[in-house]
Design a binder for these strands. Structure first.
Lengths: 110, 110
DNA sequence: TGGTAGCGTAAGCCATCGCTTATCAAGCGG
DNA sequence: CCGCTTGATAAGCGATGGCTTACGCTACCA
C-alpha cells in the first residue's frame, strides 16, 4: 500500500497533458474569466470547455466563483506548486547525473 | 497554419502525462540505465518499457546509446527545459493575476 | 412573471493509447 | 559457429478520454 503515493503532481500532469485543456488554462493567465469568455475563439464547444474546467478544478489548478448566472474561473497558483517541485527536483538530479555521466565517459574518451 | 505553434512543451507534457512513463523517466534520475534494469521492478513488461522509452526519446526527454547488445538510456536535461520555461512563465503570470484579482476584490469586500 | 442568458450534466461515439504476447534482429560468449 | 541474451517491433485488444448534441437548471431582466 505504498508503491505509488499518488503524488499531487499526478493530477496536474494528467490535467495539463491535453493541449486543448492547456489552452483553457492558459487563457486564465491574464485574470479570471467566465466560461463563455474562455470558450470564445476555442476550437471546441462550450460544454467541452466546461468539462475541461472541471478536470482542472479537480486537479487544483483553477478555482470557481459563481457570480450571478456566470461562473468565473481563476488560476490557482497553489495547483502549480507540486508540478514545480517535481520539475525542479528532476532538473537538479538530471543535471547532476548528466554531469557525472559526462565526466565518467570523458575518462577514457578522446 | 498558425493557430497552434505546437510548442516544444506539448510533447513533453504528453510524454510525462502517463504515470508509468513518468516512473520510467524518474528511474533515470540517478544515472544512465539499460532497458532491462529500468524494467526491473516495473509493473509492466519490458516491451512496454521500450515503448515508453521511445515516446520519451521522441519528446527529447531521454537519449539512447547502444552499448553492445544493451541499450543505455539517459535523461536529456534539454528536454526538460521547455517544460520549465512554460511553468515559470505560467507561475509568474498566475501569481501576478492572482494578486491583482485579490486586490481588486478587496476593494469592496469586508 | 414569462423569457432569456449562462452553465453544468447525460448519453453516446470515435479515436487514441497503453499493455500483452509473439516474432525478429543483433551482438557476445562458449 | 551456435546459442543465449538484450531490445525493438508487429498485431491486436480493452480501456480511457475528449467531443458533440440534447437537456435541465438557476439567476437576471423587462
Amino acid at each position: 500500500m505504498s508503491a505509488r503515493p499518488a503524488a499531487a503532481s499526478d493530477r496536474a500532469f494528467a490535467a495539463l497533458a491535453d493541449p486543448t485543456r492547456r489552452r483553457v488554462f492558459e487563457r486564465l493567465r491574464a485574470g479570471p474569466l467566465p466560461v463563455a469568455r474562455i470558450a470564445e475563439g476555442m476550437p471546441v464547444s462550450r460544454p467541452a470547455v466546461s468539462q475541461h474546467l472541471k478536470v482542472l478544478k479537480e486537479a487544483g489548478l483553477v478555482t470557481e466563483r459563481p457570480e450571478g448566472t456566470r461562473n468565473v474561473y481563476s488560476i490557482d497558483p497553489k495547483g502549480l506548486a507540486p508540478l514545480r517541485r517535481w520539475l525542479n527536483e528532476m532538473w537538479d538530479e538530471a543535471l547532476d547525473a548528466f554531469a557525472r555521466a559526462v565526466e565518467e565517459e570523458g575518462d577514457g574518451e578522446e
